[in-house]
């Protein structure tokens, strides 16, 4: 028989987002709340001056949380439902499964992304080139987050461990680093710590496109190189070190 790779990818989108969205619409509110709540807090605390920065940061955060949220979903389907084992013993390979699950996260957050894009159109005013760079930036950080999420899901043995990973990742990658605010707000001795997180580079690139921060050409180049390198490294780890088949 002819097997359709597209169907295998679409199956994950159905299982992990479309069926869940249809059967549990409240999940849509859940995905909206996380980025919007921080956006609101930053906006109110800054008397509205940081709204544009935070609106752009919320897009970055949404991509990261979508990617890392995949960890929880994959772990649940693997450890609690044993669905992944059923898929392992089928013609679907890990690539199709992960791509499908990653796309399912995007589908899941379509309402959030749509709302944030409206915010960005209203408050950020990016050029066409700037919007394209932001898109590439979001794609890179999403690929990093998905790779990290997949790797962690394959080594986690139960949902409690998965929650622990998520609880650590969320603040380290999105809340603490200068994603919702300019990096200059961090006092200098601590500013260097922000560069541990790949989201700092993604946010800096995005903020420079909107004119919220100024990066030299060399800095822009360096940040892209670092972001891509981290993404490639984690992508490689996810592909090579993840346990599709248990050992």
């Amino acid at each position: 028989m002819i097997r359709h790779r597209g169907s295998q990818i679409y199956a994950s989108i159905l299982v992990n987002s479309l069926y869940a969205m249809v059967n549990y619409p409240i999940m849509l509110i859940n995905t909206l709340l996380a980025p919007l709540s921080i956006l609101a807090v930053v906006t109110f605390a800054s008397h509205g001056t940081l709204l544009p920065v935070a609106a752009e940061g919320a897009l970055i955060m949404n991509m990261v949380t979508s990617g890392t949220a995949m960890q929880g979903d994959l772990s649940h389907l693997k450890n609690d439902m044993r669905l992944q084992d059923m898929v392992v013993s089928s013609p679907t390979g890990p690539g199709s499964y992960v791509v499908g699950m990653a796309l399912s996260q995007i589908v899941y957050s379509v309402p959030t992304i749509s709302l944030l894009i409206i915010f960005n159109i209203l408050f950020v005013h990016l050029s066409v080139v700037g919007a394209f760079v932001l898109f590439l930036d979001m794609a890179a950080i999403f690929t990093f987050a998905v790779s990290l999420g997949f790797f962690l899901s394959t080594i986690s043995t139960d949902i409690i461990q998965t929650w622990a990973f998520s609880g650590i990742l969320a603040p380290i990658l999105t809340t603490i680093p200068p994603v919702y605010y300019p990096i200059s707000y961090i006092p200098l001795p601590y500013r260097y710590l922000a560069y541990i997180s790949p989201t700092t580079y993604a946010a800096q690139i995005a903020q420079s496109q909107a004119g919220f921060t100024v990066l030299t050409l060399t800095q822009t180049f360096e940040y892209w190189i670092i972001l891509i390198a981290i993404t490639v490294v984690f992508g490689y780890i996810a592909l090579k070190r993840s346990r599709w088949r248990d050992v």
Binding site: M1, I2, R3, H4, R5, S7, Q8, Y10, A11, L14, V15, Y19, A20, N23, Y24, M86, V87, S90, P91, T92
Partner: peptide, 17 residues
């Protein structure tokens, strides 16, 4: 959260249908 119809449909799609 899935129905039997959705369960079987998605599994067959994993098999490439």
């Amino acid at each position: 959260w899935m129905t039997p119809l959705q369960t079987i449909t998605s599994y067959l799609m994993y098999r490439g249908y």
